[in-house]
Amino acid sequence: MSIDLKTIKHISKLSRISVDEKKAEKLAGDLNSIFDFIEKLNELKTDNVEPLTSVAETTLKLRSDEVKSKNLRDQVIKNSPKENEDYFVVPKVIE
């Protein structure tokens, strides 16, 4: 199996990481060698194996419906790259 430049561009788009031709070629090379190594898994038959998502063998704990987090606007906005007292600000989105 081989990952081509078109695939690299598609996944770069999905992951919102821009790539130019040079970077795409480098990535394709790296990913192909990594996937060559990953293909080893195909040696195994796993049809009847239950997938393991978490090793924590408990179930989800439920919390009570209480409002504990009060107005944190200053804290939440403090680190945001664009100064604004009330909102997070991003370049205009045209729908």
Binding site: S15, R16, V19, P81, F88, V90, P91
Partner: peptide, 22 residues
């Protein structure tokens, strides 16, 4: 690049995302 951390300026939202992350 929206809530915290480094942001690269972009022409639009997607451009900002891609530049910030790359």
């Amino acid at each position: 690049g929206v809530k915290y951390g480094f942001r690269a300026e972009g022409e639009n939202l997607i451009d900002m995302y891609e530049k910030t992350r790359s």
